[in-house]
């Protein structure tokens, strides 16, 4: 307990703690919709697509600025979503295949550009590779302020357009039928995922950031059958993972925050799979045992009943 308190007394640590918690919260909320739309891989695609965006931003400006990198990553992410949308609309390819192509294509380009930068005359290139696996410790006050704005924006859009996002996740055909601009809403949802991914890259890195979108959402689904509650739970699970990740990595020396955050989320997922009511493995096992016992008892009673009847005869 002392350790937590002393850790939280450090202002630098406070920023990182707050940043990771907010990141988990917003990714958890927005991740629900991409999971329910069967686009769990979308976050992964967008994260990988961000790498060439970051590299190009650096090559164009020669400056290692987080803000510029985020703009580059955002543009690349949007290009990727438009690309996926274009491929699925205009070819027979399904979305998973389109995502696979776009993801690996963009990531390949990113690695090539990264190598190019490291062997070029860019001087100030060290640190770009940090985006691969993230470095939460590099977060400063201004980053956290930006993250707070992003988090607030994501959550308010999801709250305002909750019924639209719900219906395009459940039945897009019906949504189109009642006149909702489904294509626009789908692009908006994608854009929000891009924003969440870009916000998360600094802390968690290109490779792992998708986990923050998928894992809390899938875990939350185990605890509830209501979308509203699922979104809230998913946000909380994400936030708890971020908080736990920061705390554990600060208490144990030399553990990276991002991967530990993802591991914390994975652990919460494991708990959900095991102990979720109704859907959890334990609950299912118990239910089956109960049903079996009742069945046995009923057949026994039935048998006794017929025996008695026979005796009465």
């Amino acid at each position: 307990m002392d350790k937590i308190l002393s850790m939280l007394a450090d202002p630098n640590m406070q920023w990182i703690f707050l940043g990771c918690t907010l990141l988990g919260l917003s990714s958890g909320v927005i991740g629900c919709f991409s999971y329910l739309r069967k686009q769990s891989l979308m976050g992964d695609t967008l994260a990988h697509a961000a790498l060439p965006g970051i590299c190009i931003a650096f090559m164009l400006t020669g400056v290692k600025s987080i803000g510029l990198f985020l703009i580059g990553a955002g543009i690349a992410g949007l290009a990727a979503t438009l690309g996926i949308g274009y491929i699925t609309r205009n070819s027979k390819l399904k979305q998973d295949a389109a995502m696979g192509i776009v993801l690996s294509g963009f990531f390949g380009l990113g690695i090539v550009l990264l190598t190019f930068i490291q062997h070029g005359n860019y001087g100030n290139q060290s640190g770009l590779d940090k985006f691969m696996f993230g470095q939460a410790a590099s977060m400063i006050a201004s980053d956290v302020v930006a993250m707070t704005i992003v988090c607030g924006l994501l959550i308010s859009v999801c709250a305002l357009l909750f019924k639209q996002f719900k219906i395009i996740s459940f039945d897009p055909g019906f949504a189109r039928g009642i006149g909702y601009p489904v294509a626009f809403l789908e692009q908006l949802l994608m854009f929000l995922i891009v924003v969440a991914v870009v916000a998360g890259i600094q802390a968690v890195g290109v490779v792992l950031v998708a986990a923050l979108l998928i894992t809390p959402a899938v875990s939350a689904r185990y605890w509830t059958d209501r979308l509203g509650l699922m979104v809230i739970l998913s946000g909380l699970i994400g936030a708890a993972s971020g908080a736990a990740g920061t705390w554990i990595s600060a208490s144990v020396s030399n553990l990276p925050t991002g991967p530990v955050t993802v591991l914390a989320a994975t652990m919460l997922f494991g708990i959900s799979v095991l102990f979720g009511p109704k859907r959890g493995l334990v609950a299912k096992r118990l239910m089956r045992r109960k049903a079996k016992r009742r069945f046995n008892r009923d057949t026994e009673l039935h048998a006794q009943g017929s025996v008695k009847k026979e005796a009465a005869l």
């Binding site: 329910l36 019924k163 459940f170 689904r221 059958d225 209501r226 979308l227």
Partner: peptide, 20 residues
């Protein structure tokens, strides 16, 4: 045409008819 494992109940689906 839809995934019936979606986290929602019958009343909620009917309510979607009012969204328009």
């Amino acid at each position: 045409s839809v995934d019936w494992d979606f986290p929602t109940n019958a009343l909620d689906v009917v309510l979607m008819g009012r969204y328009g």
